[in-house]
Design a protein around this nucleic acid. Structure first.
Lengths: 324, 324
DNA sequence: TCAAAAGTGTTATCCTTACACCCATGT
DNA sequence: ACATGGGTGTAAGGATAACACTTTTGA
């Protein structure tokens, strides 16, 4: 009532694509050298755009010369000291994070590079999330020892309600003891690492607990962009199971193995081939084009396309896939 | 890059409680008479609060004299013309919606009233969401006829990607034809009604399609508060199934029937008694206090309390309850 | 002919859903 | 005694997960 404070609103997009078995995220590399990678960003100017989503699409297109398709809002981050580097002045900024899906087309590579943007393997930023070649070594080598000793420290009391103990959060997030590892808990894992001061970004935010290991845990990003990325990955890993969003990442025609490889790139683990095929076909998510194609040696695979009509037929068409 | 526009950020809370079989939402009634009910609101002032959540808690406490416990962020609404009434001037406003859970304690009634706040049955605002006494009459009397003819109108092309047809959205949202009615799709239902111009708020936003019926579809609210409420209800109905959030709404000790009644108040439908009991006890979500209590005539019921330890034992302790 | 990848068939297990029934208390 | 709400047992059905096996191609 009193002050009516003015604030800047920034929009950030985690733009995701998949190339073969590699999941990609669109990053911008600043003109100034030696600056960290960041997500495409744009201030929200309500005098220019009627909605935040329109503004975001515009910003991404300007910065990366890429038109994005599927977009959804993730979360709004507003903590003091998260959106600027320390010492930087200016009005307070809050950032609204978005998830966007697109196809990584070869044809756009040049335009991207000219605009100062490039596709990067997203597991470069979150290496502990890729379990496709088995349990990532970095977990037992660096992460879990550090987090375990951090969890054993006396805990500061939380101001509102009783939150869970560090130990319990750790077990849940990383699947310790009898808990299963849940690939969707990307954000919980990132937040634990951040709170424990194992993430570089936490140190400059002044939130480091000082437990830092020598090993760098993934490539750092600007501001809170890695947190937004973790949120995006968590959302995507969950959403894929009950909405047919994978097809936003696929070309018009594809083999079932290619589809499976894409899902595996996103979820970071291997799926059971036979059940995956049965599931996809049984759910009537795809239809055969009638053609086959020989990708490498071995039997040629049948080509499929997404059956768009499924959206009119079933309430929650997704890929609830089981392990291995 | 160019303008650095300044924007106001407003925080809104859908504060929820349950009293017996009645689900409640905390509303504020302005000093000015004849103004619509609204949700507790406060501008976010980063110079006073480090986080948006802290600011929200403060605003709610000031406006309603109520300390809230559980809080989670829902969504950020930033469309032009949604946060102010037409003609009103001032900087652009975006609003961040929150869901908060609390117990409706008798003792706080007076303090609330003095602060200009009161508890209201939330189905007064969203009457088509309450299926506990069977299918709401308003559906066939007003909503579906109007929506069906709206869905038959020629559709405006959407600028990005191909969205689903009105007819499909309608079938999905309201469970027409062979689709089951999904109590979680609260927001989809509200948005259809809004787009079709059947919601009073849409008319003053200038978004009405002009199909308005004579029957008022639920009590209107200020600005986009009803949309935030719909978002909150959708989130809560979903969350209850995989996190033990109901217990935020329960007193320390309760009977299993009281717990079921609370869940039914939230989800808006009846549950299968026997399976509900088995589920709750089987999931070890509660433990008997050893005492029994006679609420009315009939056999006295055993009292239970929430087993907080479950949070340390299971990854997703919720109430995945089946129908009837 | 053999490796590699595609593709099919069948069974065990668990979880959900529904139905049928008994128990303790107030009026 | 009987109405009312509390409480238990068990079986059918469907979805998931795991297993073993056949087919078609390139080298």
């Amino acid at each position: 009532m009193a002050s009516d404070p003015q604030i800047e609103v920034g929009l950030n997009a985690a733009v995701v694509a998949v190339n073969g078995a590699m999941p990609l995220i669109l990053t911008v590399t600043s003109e100034r050298e030696r600056m960290r990678d960041g997500l495409p960003f744009g201030p929200f100017d309500p005098s220019r755009h009627r909605t935040m989503e329109a503004s975001l699409r515009d910003s991404v297109e300007v910065q990366t010369a890429l038109k994005i398709g599927y977009v959804e809002q993730l979360y709004t981050f507003g903590d003091r000291g998260r959106q600027r580097h320390p010492g930087e002045e200016g009005p307070h900024m809050i950032s609204v994070g978005y998830l966007a899906l697109t196809r990584a087309e070869k044809s756009s590579e040049d335009r991207l590079r000219n605009a100062g943007a490039r596709w990067r393997d997203w597991y470069a930023y979150l290496p502990w999330e890729d379990w496709r070649d088995g349990r990532p070594a970095i977990l037992d080598k660096a992460i879990l020892p550090a987090l375990t000793s951090w969890a054993a420290l006396p805990e500061p009391a939380s101001p509102y309600g009783k939150s869970q103990s560090r130990r319990t959060r750790l077990r849940l997030a990383f699947g310790l003891d009898d808990f299963p590892f849940d690939e969707e808990r990307v954000l919980e894992r990132y937040e634990l690492l951040y709170e424990a001061g194992l993430i570089e970004e936490a140190i400059e935010d002044g939130n480091a607990a000082g437990t830092l290991t020598e090993i760098q845990l993934g490539q750092p990003m600007r501001f809170d962009h890695r947190r937004i990325m973790a949120t995006a990955l968590a959302r995507l890993r969950g959403k894929i199971k009950y909405r047919p969003v994978v097809f936003e990442l696929m070309p018009g025609e594809f083999t079932l193995t290619e589809l499976q490889t894409t899902v595996e790139a996103i979820s970071g683990r291997h799926l059971h081939k036979q059940n995956f095929r049965r599931l996809v076909e049984g759910a009537e998510l795809v239809e055969p084009t009638g053609e086959t194609i020989a990708r490498a040696s071995g039997r040629p695979a049948a080509l499929f396309r997404f059956r768009r009509q499924i959206l009119d037929e079933r309430p929650a068409p997704g890929l609830k896939v089981g392990g291995r």
